[in-house]
Amino acid sequence: MRIGELSERTCTSRRLLRYYEEQGLIVSRRESNGWRCYNERNVDRVRQIRGLLDAGLPTRIIRQILPCLEEPGAIHVSDASPEIIAALERERDRMTKRIRFLVRNRDAVAAYLDMVRDGHAA
């Protein structure tokens, strides 16, 4: 698929997709006319990247953990510095707190909806 289709399917600007490619986060091949061509796998990859960026991870860390999201048996961690490990632990803990917060809010909204649907709103 071309960059325009990848952009539409992932709700990601073409400029960001080019940036992801520059950062080594996604890969394209070039057609004979020079246009970028992406495979289907890039749709999920871009969504994963966006989610990790939304969680606050910088692209340098995302580049290192992307293999964990695809092929857990093929992870190479020989270049994981203590700083990167500490940063990942902080991010994991921050995400865990955020997940708890989101679950609590989701449950509150669901309870409110149940009350409203049952006609018991205060």
Results as ranks from 00 to 15, higher is better:
Ile84Cys: 07
Gly56Val: 09
Ser28Met: 08
Leu88Tyr: 04
Gly56Ala: 09
Arg41Cys: 06
Val46Met: 00
Ile49Cys: 01
Ile61Leu: 15
Ser78Gly: 15
Ser32Tyr: 03
Gln64Ala: 10
Asp44Ile: 00
Pro67Gly: 01
Arg63Phe: 04
Arg41Gly: 14
Gln64Leu: 15
Gly34Cys: 11
Leu57Pro: 02
Leu66Tyr: 06
Gln64Tyr: 00
Ser28Trp: 05
Ser81Ala: 11
Ile62Ala: 04
Glu70Asp: 14
Asp54Ile: 04
Leu66Ser: 07
Ile85Glu: 10
Ile85Phe: 09
Ser28Val: 08
Asp54Pro: 03
Ser32Cys: 04
Leu52Val: 07
Asp54Tyr: 10
Asn33Asp: 14
Leu66Thr: 09
Pro67Arg: 01
Val46Ile: 10
Gln64Ser: 09
Glu89Asp: 13
Leu88Asp: 03
Ile65Thr: 05
Leu66Met: 14
Glu31Ser: 13
Asn39Gln: 15
Ser28Thr: 08
Arg60Phe: 06
Cys37Arg: 15
Asn42Lys: 05
Leu88Ser: 08
Ile84Tyr: 02
Ser28Pro: 02
Glu71Phe: 07
Ser81Lys: 11
Ser78His: 12
Leu88Trp: 09
Pro72Thr: 06
Pro82Ser: 14
Val27Gly: 00
Glu31Asn: 12
Leu53Ser: 07
Arg36Met: 10
Arg50His: 05
Leu52Ser: 02
Arg47Phe: 07
Ile65Met: 05
Cys68Trp: 08
Gln48Asp: 12
Trp35His: 15
Asp79Ile: 00
Cys68Glu: 02
Thr59Met: 10
Asn33Cys: 06
Thr59Ser: 15
Ile75Asp: 01
Ser28Lys: 03
Cys68Val: 06
Asp79Glu: 15
Ala80Ile: 10
Gly34Trp: 08
Gly73Glu: 14
Val27Met: 06
Arg60Leu: 06
Arg45Asn: 00
Gly34Ser: 08
Leu52Ile: 04
Glu83Trp: 06
Arg45Gln: 09
Leu53Tyr: 00
Pro58Lys: 11
Ile26Tyr: 01
Gly73Ala: 13
Glu89Ala: 14
Arg36Thr: 12
Ser32Asp: 14
Ser78Phe: 05
Leu69Asp: 04
Glu31His: 09
Pro82Met: 12
Asn39Trp: 04
Leu52Lys: 02
Ile61His: 05
Ser32Phe: 00
Arg47Met: 14
Ile65Asp: 04
Cys68Gln: 04
Gly73Cys: 10
Glu31Asp: 12
Glu40Val: 11
Pro82Arg: 08
Arg30His: 11
Arg30Phe: 04
Ala80Gly: 02
Arg60Ala: 13
Ile75Met: 13
Arg30Pro: 03
Val27Asn: 05
Pro82Cys: 11
Glu89Ser: 13
Tyr38Gly: 07
Arg36Leu: 10
Arg45Gly: 00
Arg47Lys: 15
Val46Leu: 00
Ile84Ser: 06
Ala55Leu: 15
Arg60Val: 12
Leu69Cys: 12
Gly56Lys: 09
Val46Phe: 01
Ile49Ala: 03
Ser78Arg: 11
Gln48Tyr: 07
Asn39His: 10
Ala55Met: 15
Glu71Ala: 11
Tyr38Val: 10
Gly73Pro: 03
Asn33Val: 07
Ile84Asp: 12
Arg47Trp: 06
Ala86Asp: 15
Glu71Pro: 01
Pro72Ser: 05
Cys37Lys: 11
Pro82Tyr: 13
Ile85Tyr: 07
Cys37Asp: 14
Ile61Cys: 01
